[in-house]
Amino acid sequence: MDVSILLFYGLATIIVFFALAVVISDNPIYSALYLAITMVTLAFVYFLLKAFFIAGVQLIVYAGAVMVLFVMVMMMFDLKKEKNSFSKGKFANFIKVGSAGWLCGLIFASIMLSKGMLPLANTNTPQAVADTSTKELAILLYTDYIFAFELLGLLLLLIAVGAVAVSRIKGGTHE
């Protein structure tokens, strides 16, 4: 038994367990906590995959900023334990969970059947690690993807203005 196998299965178990807890938990605040744990554990999986910059960004942006956003908004609401937190209808729920399970099975089957189709590189050489370093990522981001990067900045500006504008709406309805 290799250490990496144990490490991967340990992290995978934690991720799947807490992801299920996000979906099952009745209290949205507990859901947010479980989601934060899932994100932090995913960052460790990115470390296993040697994507160090992505792992750091995952910790700062997802486990930090996005979760703080969720929890801050939750503080503004008067959230108690919900009575109708799940949608009703036994048959509809069976269809929903069944379709998700069906999709999962389809993806698994396609992963298994496409084994060996993709030419995989040797990932253990020092050269391989250097090729996917943070420096290479930065060079690529500011040369080939510079327009996409600038557009992303524009999008964030639009979102900042748009979120303020949406939350200032008085709350008109059709009634």
Partner: peptide, 12 residues
């Protein structure tokens, strides 16, 4: 992904 999908479909 499928756990997230169940959450989107089932939660209110």
């Amino acid at each position: 992904f499928c756990i997230g999908m169940v959450g989107v479909l089932r939660r209110r």
